[in-house]
């Protein structure tokens, strides 16, 4: 029996038999926090019982589909990061061409005032829950264009309601992107109440 659920009140049920997890199944993150019960007396199937938040967060963090969105230089690193050498796919991040299927917006590249409205619209089109990683100096502060440019938005947080992770660099190396994705995954694991506000 794993430690997490053992601290809680043991489950007593007329329908379920509470039994320890079979030894041959390797312990992973999920099993540490969940306990296995046999469905029905006599046991035809196995149900995992635990905190729903943990399970949902675990699913969400491992399938962070990102939008194939790139405006400028960072977009090339996005391509190279998605390709074979760095392979964001290892962390469950695959690109989607449409915002309707994307969970995560990585704002790769400079955003100009002409583009700002479109970025807001792309963000609005993404389904909840959605996450934003501000990639590169341009989307964090305006970067090299901060002082002298008249047409660059000085940071994506001026136009989007929230940014989860900032990854600095001009452009950041793909390793830094991966670090950013990992940080976002850690953030997601801390989400409470399915990410909904309490009623």
């Amino acid at each position: 029996m794993s430690q997490g659920p053992a601290k809680r009140k043991p489950i007593k049920s007329n329908i379920f038999d509470v039994v320890p997890a079979p030894a041959e199944i390797p312990q992973n993150v999920l099993q540490k926090n969940f306990e296995r019960v046999r469905a029905c007396k006599g046991g035809e199937g196995i149900i995992e019982v635990g905190i729903a938040d943990l399970f949902i967060n675990w699913c969400r963090k491992n399938s962070l589909w990102y939008l194939y969105y790139a405006t400028a230089c960072c977009g090339i690193e996005l391509m190279q990061g998605g390709a074979s050498k760095y392979d964001f796919d290892r962390f469950g991040a695959v690109f989607r061409a449409t915002p309707r299927q994307a969970d995560m917006l990585m704002t790769a590249g400079t955003i100009t005032h002409k583009m700002a409205e479109r970025v807001q619209r792309i963000y609005a089109q993404m389904p909840e829950p959605k996450y934003v990683i501000a990639i590169g100096a341009c989307t964090i502060t305006g970067g090299p264009f901060y002082k002298d440019s008249y047409s660059v938005v000085k940071g994506v947080d001026l136009i989007l309601p929230k940014v989860d992770v900032y990854v600095p660099g001009c452009p950041p190396r793909p390793e830094a992107w991966i670090e950013g994705i990992r940080n976002l995954q850690n953030l997601i694991m801390k989400t409470k109440n399915y990410g909904l506000k309490k009623a």
């Binding site: 405006t71 230089c73 100009t112 002409k114 583009m115 008249y150 660059v152």
Partner: peptide
Amino acid sequence: YLHRGLEKIGERVAWAQFMPFTDRLDY
């Protein structure tokens, strides 16, 4: 949609300082 005003920046920074901006001209 990606007009960043590089020509204006070129007038406002020193000759040698414009070099990094040429990278962003064609990345």
